[in-house]
Amino acid sequence: MSDVELTPDEVRHVAALARLGLDDAEVERLGRELTSILGHVNTIAQLPIADVPPTTHANPHGDALRPDAARPGAPRAEALANAPDPAPEGFRVPPIGA
């Protein structure tokens, strides 16, 4: 995969996964930009390093676990204060759709 060229359909597919509603102009622009960026990124694709373990954490010495102690949550009013569409007891969302 030395040369990647993202087609508009591929861009739309990725945008759908990311739930980004893009208009046609954005699809066209992002297709161009992503092709260029991924072209650069592809310089590492060919490196013969399949036997090298990947690094996922920069500090391997963290505290992995916490003790199981409960404390009260935030007051509901506070939890709901930022809600764009609060109901008395929760967060309202539109229908799931077909």
């Binding site: 109901a87 007891e89 929760g90 967060f91 309202r92 969302v93 229908p95 799931i96 077909a98």
Partner: peptide, 12 residues
Amino acid sequence: RIQGSAGSVVDF
């Protein structure tokens, strides 16, 4: 039933 319902409230 999820489909076709008139919106929901989420309890976290």
